[in-house]
Nucleic acid binder design. Structure first.
Length: 858
DNA sequence: ACTCTGCTTCTTTTT
DNA sequence: GAAGCAGAGT
């Protein structure tokens, strides 16, 4: 089957839309004419400002769009594609549009669909770098030594594999952690380096100088497993395109227009990948299928070619084809993936890579208030080496509030206060969906979750613990993988003895060794072994059953509907039964998840296509219906916007993160600052920044000092909030006295815990700044007479707050005595009901008040 | 073979 | 504070 779907003309009547074909040189006559024409263009162009419109209509030649936060970047990208299609400049299948995240790809697809209708479906080359990489790699897998049904390993698999290799080398996997090496490999692949190309120093720095050898061994192993990792999805295509000019030419001829989102985040490998694909064919491609590809996939122009670029197109230069229609959109101020190998440099030198590039700046911000914009601009101005943009809004509103900075004693109070603010806003009629808490590191989320659970406040963790990373899902997937790809040893090893079948280390080791010795997959090895006397009778019969099962399931792969087959696999393997017999609190939830897994398979046509989807799109769709507060990391917030944004944890060591400072030095700090900038610019109307004086790191309490970023905010746009329960007026130095214990109520849990932990406060390496600050707590004279234990304090306050906010009057579906399950607290009995809030006696967690939507009857 | 316990380390961010 | 691991115990 061809991976190049049929090219579908976008318009029924190809003559109609072509009249306006062609391109516009920036500032040229055509551009001015277009401007003069104003709103008379096609209606999708209406409502664009002049810069946006220029970016949309400059279709020919290289173009860099520097789009500040909230300036309508996505709109430009999608409208540009619609424009290209409606002018008939290319077929949908001739446009390559790359994004970084699945989310961005999905959104782009949706929005193009709105503009252009069903034609989006004809855009097979809209996707993430990785998904497009797979697509290319599947077509030419054999050139990378793979079969086209190769498996894509996720990070977990990779680490397990590397661990095996390290142990096989006789190295101490404590001293040389697999995780570290996985990161190194990832780093190399981000630079497009194979085992033979890595710097000598890198190679020597790991595993007693065996780094290179180990990398090579890893690649070899991947090949025999018929698998690749995320990095390979970029590197293999690069190597294939380089080594096979004819294939490269095929793609070059195919992609008439290339669009790249978030260009500032491209790493070296992605850059090389783009450079290759963005080449123009140096001579016209004969309209023929290259000899070695008989499947028709190489035929790039099965239909009459679309019209050539109009008269204003750049004339072809001597010795090469016409110039490249590549459009990169990005914002150097939002480059936050340096740690993943992103090279801001790529965007900074765009015009050198693509000579004659036009540059359009989008600086008109449609998102945020003037105060928020002012704060963000002032902060980011502390960075050097920017391309420099000045965001402005055309609709300043004198009623807009300033950016609020709040202090809290500890992270628990922070969570409590944020929760309170959210509830207040909710009472005023604001939707929870319009609010977001953006944290620097995911461990910060917990405290908010805990708090919101006790408050009965709906929340959703975006990009959080992902569905497909859960234990039971990974196990189930491992079964499916072995059935679909019997050579998938990693999956096989994962589940041979899950549920327990009496196949211990010894037995598995034998299968493993036999497989390695013969260079065959483990399942095949097991098939051989069970016919011999090598294994003891018990493991032997257990293994035989496994082998027989897999053979049977495999034989049903094409005949049985895949959802039925999947259910059958889980049942017959005893996996479902394993959880049914499990009496722990998680078991019901896990069974529920397995059902959900089967349900989600229905959308796919086969087990194989489902597996591919999971490998790439490791995120589950969120329930948008439910009104809930959004909790996510700053990184995953990029590209989103919310009415109200909370930014907790602005403390030295956490934000900026100590590790960024240690490893990245100055540029590390600048990246953190850009992250702060991203956070600030997510907010449309209200922005609340928080910092605390005490935070628990690695389980012990540490004193912290406010982030330097706070001092970098402009006074004029910032207001230091004096909320009722907050501590400390700000005197001389705005933030230093934030945590004056003498204005505290001594009964806060944080205070008590600080007391309790005072003696054992051995400060670890959490940065000299916070370390030096330890003694500033200075509560030596306070003795420990503030009786109330943590539980009672918490209980009392919760009651007070909850009484005040029981609003729901819909009759509850629960009644006292009901047996229920809660994903966090486990099983319990309903004690009493208050609107939509339940008091439940949990078997393990004790009495808790929770929202009814968080529990289910069992 | 499996399970329990105490020890360690770790927590940046993602395809 | 949790997850992962080694070693001991069943």
């Amino acid at each position: 089957m061809s991976d190049f779907p049929d090219d579908m003309p976008f318009f029924e009547d190809p003559a109609a839309p072509r009249a306006t074909g062609g391109s516009v040189a920036p500032g040229g006559i055509a551009a001015r004419a277009l401007k003069a024409r104003g709103a008379t263009g096609p209606n999708y162009l209406q409502g664009l400002n002049p810069e946006q419109r220029l970016a949309v209509e400059t279709t020919e030649g290289p173009l860099l769009v520097l789009a500040g936060a909230g300036t309508g970047k996505t709109r430009v990208l999608t409208t540009r594609i619609a424009h290209i299609l409606s002018l008939g400049l290319a077929y949908p299948s001739q446009i390559l549009a790359v994004t970084f995240t699945n989310k961005a790809a999905r959104e782009m697809k949706e929005r193009i669909g709105v503009l252009v209708g069903g034609a989006v479906e004809g855009m097979p080359w809209l996707g993430t770098f990785h998904s497009i990489g797979v697509k290319i790699l599947r077509r030419h897998a054999e050139l990378a030594g793979l079969r086209s049904d190769f498996t894509i390993l996720d990070t977990d698999d990779v680490i397990r594999l590397i661990k095996q290799l390290i142990q096989a080398e006789g190295l101490d996997d404590k001293r040389w952690p697999a995780r570290t090496f996985a990161n190194m490999i990832d780093g190399w692949k981000n630079k497009g380096l194979g085992p033979s190309e890595i710097p000598e120093g890198d190679a020597r720095s790991f595993a007693n100088g065996k780094g290179r050898q180990l990398y090579q061994a890893y690649q070899d192993r991947l090949k025999t497993l018929n698998a690749c990792d995320f990095g390979d999805l970029l590197c293999h295509p690069i190597r294939i395109l380089r080594a096979n000019p004819d294939i490269l030419r095929e793609y070059n001829a195919r992609f008439k227009y290339i669009l790249v989102d978030e260009y500032q985040d491209t790493n070296t490998a992605q850059y090389m990948w783009l450079r290759l694909l963005a080449q123009r064919p140096s001579f016209p491609l004969a309209g023929k299928v290259p000899a070695e590809r008989a499947d028709g996939g190489g035929d790039v122009a099965p239909h009459p070619a679309p019209p050539p670029p109009g008269p204003a197109g750049h004339p072809p230069r001597k010795g090469e084809g016409s110039s490249v229609n590549i459009c990169c959109v990005g914002d150097d101020d939002q480059s936050i993936y340096g740690w993943r190998g992103a090279e801001v440099d790529n965007i900074l030198r765009f015009d050198k890579d693509f000579p004659g590039a036009a540059v359009v700046r989008l600086e008109r911000n449609y998102r945020s208030t003037a105060h928020i914009l002012g704060a963000a601009s002032h902060l980011i101005a502390h960075n050097e080496g920017r391309l420099g943009k000045t965001l402005f809004t055309e609709a300043p509103n004198p009623d807009d509030g300033k950016v609020n900075v709040h202090a809290a004693w500890d992270s628990e109070e922070e969570a409590r206060a944020v929760g309170e603010t959210i509830e207040q806003a909710q009472r005023k009629g604001h939707l929870l969906n319009n609010m977001a808490i953006l944290v620097r590191a995911s461990f910060q989320m917990r405290e908010f979750e805990d708090r919101f659970v006790t408050l009965g406040l709906n929340y959703r963790v975006v990009g959080g613990p992902r569905f497909y990373e859960r234990l039971e899902i990974r196990d189930a997937m491992a079964y499916f993988r072995v059935v679909a790809q019997p050579a998938d040893d990693l999956a096989f090893e994962r589940i041979v003895n899950t549920p327990k079948r009496g196949l211990g280390e010894a037995a598995i080791r034998q299968v493993h060794d036999y497989a390695r010795a013969r260079d065959i997959p483990m399942l095949a090895a097991a098939t051989d072994l069970v016919q011999t006397e090598e294994l003891k009778p018990k493991p032997r019969s257990a293994l035989k059953e496994v082998v027989d099962n897999f053979n049977r399931w495999h034989s049903l792969l094409d005949s049985k509907p895949h959802t039925e087959l999947a259910e059958m696999i889980l049942d017959e393997s005893g996996y479902t039964a394993m959880w049914q017999n499990d009496r722990t609190a998680e078991a019901p939830g896990r069974l529920e998840n397995l059902k959900e897994l089967i349900r989600s398979m229905e959308e796919y046509e086969s087990l194989r296509s489902f597996l591919e989807h999971v490998a790439l799109v490791m995120d589950a769709e969120q329930n948008e219906e439910l009104d809930a507060v959004n909790i996510m990391t700053l990184h995953s917030a990029k590209g989103l916007e919310f009415e109200t944004v909370f930014l907790p944890g602005w403390e030295e060591g956490l934000f900026p993160h100590q590790r960024s400072l240690d490893e990245g030095g100055r540029s590390g700090l600048e990246e953190e600052r850009r992250l702060a900038y991203v956070g600030l610019t997510r907010a449309k109307k209200n922005l609340h920044i928080w910092f605390v004086s005490n935070r628990r790191i690695h389980g012990l309490w540490q004193s912290t000092i406010p982030s330097r970023f706070l001092e970098e905010l402009p006074e004029a746009h910032v207001e230091v909030a004096e909320t009722g329960n907050s501590y400390g007026g700000y005197g001389q130095s705005r933030f230093d006295r934030a945590a004056d214990p003498f204005q505290n109520s001594y009964s806060t849990p944080g205070w008590q815990r600080a007391q309790a932990n005072r003696s054992e406060a051995t400060r670890s390496n959490w940065g000299s700044r916070s370390g030096a600050n330890v003694e500033r707590i200075g509560y030596g004279e306070a003795d420990s007479g503030f009786g109330a234990g943590r539980g009672s304090v918490k209980g009392r306050m919760i009651d007070g707050e909850l009484v005040a906010k029981s609003v729901s009057d819909t009759p509850s579906a629960f009644k006292p005595g009901d047996r229920v399950f809660h994903t966090k607290f486990g099983n319990g009995n309903v004690a009493s009901i208050d609107g939509n809030k339940l008091t439940i006696d949990f078997d393990r967690a004790g009495q808790k008040r929770v929202l009814d939507s968080f529990v289910q009857k069992v």
